[in-house]
Design a protein around this nucleic acid. Structure first.
Lengths: 342, 342
DNA sequence: ATGTTTTGTCCAGATATTTGTCAAAATACA
DNA sequence: TGTATTTTGACAAATATCTGGACAAAACAT
């Protein structure tokens, strides 16, 4: 009653044996027993014959601990930290640790690329996702996105351009990777309380791979993202801004044609800016853009108003991140209340 | 054997006795009985004299469990996993009945539609996925797909056609729903050991919503699916068949143009069929198709070779399911088993 | 470099739990 | 009639798990 979103008592019926838990979490049985002996974590229920019974919540907590463990934290500390947090929901939120994308290529990740590519070309989607899952277990998500998914997507795109790949294969691979990216995007933690970033492809632009990767990175850093995907008509820009008051709109263009079409964007925003007399002080969003078109023909950037976000995804991400940081700083100075979370 | 039952059309529900099932699956009779006694699996029908009658679906489920068993999984766990999805598929299967359309799905699910639509139009993707997650917790996945996602997708598409919706809104909603569908597709259980079903949009066709829903349903019923998504060029058909030897290829076309383009498919398969002299006895895949184009202009179906899968997703799923059942049945038993003569 | 703490793994005998098989009497099927 | 099937309980083999101690590798502090 006092808490508006108290979960409707998910009575955890299904209980897991230690073997199942070991398989799910990847923590050996012996370790699970030792943890309980030494740290009293987790506090398992028992059968009549003293066999351990793990609840679903416990499995979640163990997954959290395992993640910290893989990140190098010591078991005792991770367990202690986990015991502090009472709620499983809090645990789920903290699952992802934002890491700044680094520029060091991990040799293990380079191997992963080859394996992933192999699985994709063999139409073995399940194997591909398994490979990515394992990579995530050992490395930061951001690193996997930038150093594995990115290069593999690029390789596939290039092979396809050169005619070395059937379209069907390209379709399949792209779908599997896109699916994984969307998956990660959704699994990322709850966003900050800022006006969202709108991500869209330029008009007529159909390639959304890099936009998705950018989306995952931003989401990982807890920025709220509204993902619009392929071929956004500029005509809608005004209504869009009215609806969601984004702090930032990012366009991506791969082909010269869509980049040129993109240049028209001010027409659809300025007209609207005059129409509304700023009864509430609506701040127009910042417009940024990027994509291969602007790398191959740098002159294009001159014709497109707004901010060029950079040549690589990592670069674009960092620039956006900085802009958003500044925006939140301004907002807090203004005295706006941010959501108070304990 | 030579019974006047010469209608080799698949009977509604061929039923097997326990001896036949034991021989087909390789599971001893005693074990089959114990499984039913202990796990209530499968829930067999009975003759007047209490003899067990196994349906074709049950035999398939038993084969799946046997496969897991041979991989080392415990019998109890394998059966439990199988039972999890049994309900969901049962719902989808029951939907094939052309009973009165006023068969209200579930008032709760109808409410869910409205809530989902509201969240999507407000650009609150997180709320939308939360709503769907909760719906899944209370209802079968297949029901949520068919009775919530489907209608909402249709409503959005229609509003968009009538110009009542900005393209940006449509893009956003479609992306969120697609993301959720891809998610479910991946989470579904490991597939049977059959040649996969290839799912693709017709050439130039970009609307993949219904294809995704079909994909989820098939995956839920444990059929292996290779999802290719938008706009598959027919040119690649030959190479595709060579690579993955699909048992079935399904195309979806929403517009008349793409439906007409689809009509050309035999050119790209027959050429290939003659080229290879069947050194290994390659069986060409069955080609099926569906989509709004064929509903609005039924004449189109005359120009497109292959099998028209039906007017609704549930109907298409039902037909594909039956085709695949027959394929596996044919492969499993070379000799004539007429156990279910009743 | 050295000493201390942490941490995962292994061992071995004892229990628990799961799971397939069997027996026997009764009934159904063809 | 003879074969097939059902039911129930019992049983033994196969697996999983428990306990507590010992130990070595790794991490850490000095």
């Amino acid at each position: 009653m006092s808490n508006p979103h108290s979960t409707d008592l998910p009575r955890e019926r299904p209980l897991f044996g230690i073997g199942a838990v070991a398989q799910i979490t990847g923590i050996p049985e012996g370790t699970l027993r030792v943890w309980e002996r030494r740290y009293h974590f987790p506090q398992t229920a028992r059968t009549r014959g003293r066999h351990r019974l793990y609840s679903q919540d416990m499995v979640l907590q163990l997954l959290w601990v395992k993640m910290r463990l893989d990140q190098g934290m010591r078991a005792g500390q991770a367990i202690h930290a986990c015991q502090q947090t009472e709620r499983a929901t809090a645990v789920a939120t903290a699952l992802h640790q934002p890491l700044p994308p680094s520029e060091m290529p991990d040799p293990q990740l380079v191997d992963t690329r080859a394996m992933l590519l192999d699985a994709l070309l063999a139409y073995e989607g399940d194997r591909a996702t398994a490979i990515l899952d394992e990579a995530i277990a050992r490395h930061a998500l951001a690193a996997v996105v930038l150093d594995v998914v990115g290069p593999v997507m690029a390789a596939i795109g290039e092979s396809w351009c050169h005619g070395n790949l059937e379209v069907a294969t390209e379709h399949f691979a792209t779908n599997v990777l896109r699916q994984q990216l969307l998956n990660w995007m959704q699994a990322s933690p709850a966003p900050y309380d800022v006006r969202p970033v709108v991500l869209a492809c330029a008009p007529e632009e159909l390639h959304e791979g890099s936009l998705l990767m950018l989306s995952v990175l931003l989401r990982l850093a807890r920025w709220p993202v509204v993902y619009l995907g392929q071929a956004l008509p500029l005509m809608d820009l005004g209504a869009l801004v009215d609806r969601i008051h984004p702090s930032l709109i990012v366009f991506v263009a791969m082909s010269e044609a869509s980049a040129l079409a993109l240049a028209e964007w001010p027409r659809w925003l300025e007209a609207r800016g005059e129409a509304q007399d700023a009864q509430p002080p609506i701040t127009l969003p910042i417009i940024g853009y990027g994509g291969r078109a602007f790398i191959e023909k740098p002159d294009l950037a001159r014709h497109v108003p707004g901010t060029l976000l950079g040549a690589t995804i990592a670069e674009g991400y960092q620039r956006i991140h900085r802009v958003l940081l500044n925006l939140t700083a301004l907002r807090q100075e203004n005295g706006e209340r941010t959501a108070g979370s304990g």
